[in-house]
């Protein structure tokens, strides 16, 4: 690793890094500020905004809703996505070339339009409960990410290992569970993280699907900043960052996230 890095490359890399990290630092500073308005750098440090956030029942309820929706939608997307990408990658030749693109269509539709259409059909026409509608909407929202990541992971899997297992006497269905899945573990994990974070951070789709008494955290935050301008939202953001960080560390410890990023 003793290679020399061109100074321009080093400078541009540094700038990009700064660009990515600066907003996080600003939010972090604002969250611990004692002032009653969003400001940076903080004049005096305090934890009062964290106390306030944790005492707001709205935020706590919404967070639970967000968590439930994100976990359910991610699980459903994996349940649909794993067999889908398996079929697409393994039987590449048997499908028309446009087939796999179908699973990326949700990415093309503006989320606002998508959310509005869901409202018109799922909630107004079908009269589904809000929670069901939220989970359905988020499943469709995160499915393209899951299919994409799982597909990439499966492309690196050598299907002849599957054939070998079958030739040695394992039932083909069992082989999918006992040979294919363990070898795309990293891809499943990456798909899970990406889908989970996408769902947790979504505003546009949730905006249309939330109803009386049921709201996601991001929608609640949006509603809050329309009325107040105190650092509570910064505190919420810091908490979310912390949760994400904890999840990442736990996954890294238990599965080795470096395998996912590779």
């Amino acid at each position: 690793m003793g290679r020399k890095v061109h100074p321009l490359l080093g400078i541009s890399a540094g700038l990009v890094f700064l660009f990515l990290i600066a907003p996080l630092v600003l939010v972090l500073g604002a969250a611990f500020n004692d002032a009653t308005y969003l400001a940076f750098p903080p004049q005096s440090l305090s934890l009062r905004w964290f106390e306030r956030v944790l005492s707001l029942q709205n935020f706590m309820d919404a967070f639970l809703v967000s968590l439930t929706v994100a976990i359910s939608a991610t699980a459903l997307a994996l349940l649909v996505g794993i067999p889908t990408s398996y079929a697409i990658v393994k039987h590449r030749g048997s499908f028309p070339s446009w087939f796999s693109s179908v699973f990326f269509l949700p990415l093309l539709v503006p989320e606002i339009v998508f959310g509005f259409s869901l409202l018109k059909t799922v909630i107004v026409a079908l009269e589904l409960p809000v929670m069901t509608a939220l989970i359905a909407g988020h499943t469709i929202l995160v499915l393209p990410y899951a299919v994409r990541v799982l597909g990439a992971s499966l492309s690196n899997f050598d299907f002849s290992a599957e054939e070998a297992a079958v030739s040695l006497g394992m039932h083909p269905l069992k082989t999918v569970l006992a040979v294919v899945l363990p070898n795309i573990k990293a891809g499943i994990l990456a798909a899970f993280i990406l889908a989970f974070i996408t769902s947790l951070n979504d505003v546009s789709v949730s905006l249309f699907l939330t109803g009386p008494g049921v709201s996601t955290l991001q929608v609640e935050v949006l509603t809050y900043v329309e009325q107040y301008f105190d650092p509570s939202v910064a505190a919420v953001s810091v908490l979310l960052m912390a949760i994400t960080l904890v999840v990442m560390v736990v996954l890294e410890r238990s599965f080795g996230l470096s395998n996912v990023v590779k």
Partner: peptide
């Protein structure tokens, strides 16, 4: 198999 096809 040609590419060994060991279970990784």
């Amino acid at each position: 198999f040609q590419n060994y096809a060991l279970l990784p």
